[in-house]
Design a protein around this nucleic acid. Sequence first.
DNA 1: GTGAAAGCGCTAACAT
DNA 2: ATGTTAGCGCTTTCAC
Lengths: 337, 337
Amino acid sequence: MNRTRPTMLDVAKESGTSLKTVSRVVNGESGVKPELVVKVERAVKKLNYRHNLTAGSLRRLGGRTKTIGLLLENVSNPFSAALHRSVEDTARARGVEVLTGSLDEDSNRERELINGFIARRVDGLIVVPSSEDHKYLVGERKAGTQFVFIDRPALNFTSDTVTATNSEGVEEAVKTLISLGHVRIAYLGDFEQIYTAKERYEGYRKALRGAKIAFDKEVVKLGFENEAAVESHLIALLSRENRPTAIFTGQNIITLMAIRVLRSKNLHHKIALIGFDDLPLADLLDPAISLVTQDIHVMGNIATQLLFDRLDGLKSPYEKRVVPTTFAQRASGLIRP
Amino acid sequence: MNRTRPTMLDVAKESGTSLKTVSRVVNGESGVKPELVVKVERAVKKLNYRHNLTAGSLRRLGGRTKTIGLLLENVSNPFSAALHRSVEDTARARGVEVLTGSLDEDSNRERELINGFIARRVDGLIVVPSSEDHKYLVGERKAGTQFVFIDRPALNFTSDTVTATNSEGVEEAVKTLISLGHVRIAYLGDFEQIYTAKERYEGYRKALRGAKIAFDKEVVKLGFENEAAVESHLIALLSRENRPTAIFTGQNIITLMAIRVLRSKNLHHKIALIGFDDLPLADLLDPAISLVTQDIHVMGNIATQLLFDRLDGLKSPYEKRVVPTTFAQRASGLIRP
DNA sequence: GTGAAAGCGCTAACAT
DNA sequence: ATGTTAGCGCTTTCAC
């Protein structure tokens, strides 16, 4: 516990060289006589020396720690977890480690975590934002910390951003429902404050407008406090006389709930359903569930690469990268009115 | 980019106090006159000062960084992701951040990541191990880094460990199959080198032994190179004349494949299936899938707390905590031979 | 090619 | 209650 780790000076003494030579060897710098390299390496092994990167970053020009931060909605949801993996893979190739945290749609938590990560001097941050104002980051960027936003753009803060074609993806899917003859198409999504929720909802409205279907607010609901609220809303919706013949769900938890409720009412073969975001096993359900999905791997990869480009000094205008969604049409989306 | 962040000295000058007073205020230490606190806080705000925790840890007794490392099998698989979240929550309550990494059952990757995290001077590590020998950690622990193993124990390295009742959980489930009259019960699991795989398989054998059912190696297979191998094995298994009447799958990807293959052969209502590990939507499939699941949240919480206890100086013998599994019996596990 | 000295931003130890 | 000084382990700078 209290024994302190050996330092470069200890290694220098053990190997009969100097501090600086040890530093050169440990950092793989060229221009050290091979026999000294061997001596140093022997001493490193003997003393079980471990380089202290954090001490080095203190003096190093630019102060880089080779650590980045990743802020997700919730590390345990499948979308966040997949994003995490793709960021990790891209970072790994560069010897960069990643600090992670869950924001739970809480703007205070966003600020706390960003502060916590900056206190640990991450080189940059990849953020799925949970707040509605990011101008507090201006000072951080000036101080050298880079930011890339993913899934949702920053607000009041121009920055590199990677998003999906939320609106277009939904529009395409809803259009297929319309082409099957559906007119009363319900839409259940997240609160409009959430960028992706707003975009997806916009796609739904565009599809209706394109087909000249009158908008019916009775079958639209945005924002649910919890899963139970989704459930009771669906039950009410399906109990109406003039119930919808198709449902579009703008998020995976809502989709899940819709599957459950349709089933419990034995309507799963009668009412069409298309959801946004992937759902494991969706193709094995009866009926198989139609989904609009995002290419998470590509999104994470682009975001991480963009962050590294900025850290490497890229000075071009901030980029808005948009990654196409995929429409997996399956039986639940092919049910006719 | 190149502008350097303000330091405590800058804040001291700006506020007309000294370095040490700023340090006291920033660290929330008591015994500073309220008016000085105000002055310092004003200067902090004005200069946009951000405390540098890594610099502090260099001099601080014990050298703690308030950062821990978490090594998982793969951050994007549901088990790892859930574990991650529970560790994060427990760590958050203490102001500790977490560095994460995926090992992919690769022992080299385990050493690399542990070295990388130690180079960043994490206070401790929570590890789902992927190697077969951990005596290389003895020196690290002596140097002050603490370790807790989760899901699987360390080898050749005595340490705190949190595991589930793998064997007992499988035994109970297989016994219910036997009680329904099944005799030819297939077992498909992971390679025996993986601790949990071995334990689960042991539970299967115990259940057979207890019922005096002769062991039949024809229906047992441990270890698959990839998903396709699982699939082809299952197809062969189910094409036999004397095919099994029930299947136990020791891991979620194998369970998934079993669901798919049974369905494609239209045997999903004829052959019983029970799997290990949770599967989202399992209760919505037809038939609903019986599963033996782990209480991941509890496991992560215990492991993290144990790590903090050690960091706080707990000197008692290393603990082996075992968390009970749960058997969710559903239709697929109730099919009779 | 190698080393000595200074100093990164902070906390510890010791004044005052 | 506040300030001063040394030094954590490293990289930089510059001298040899």
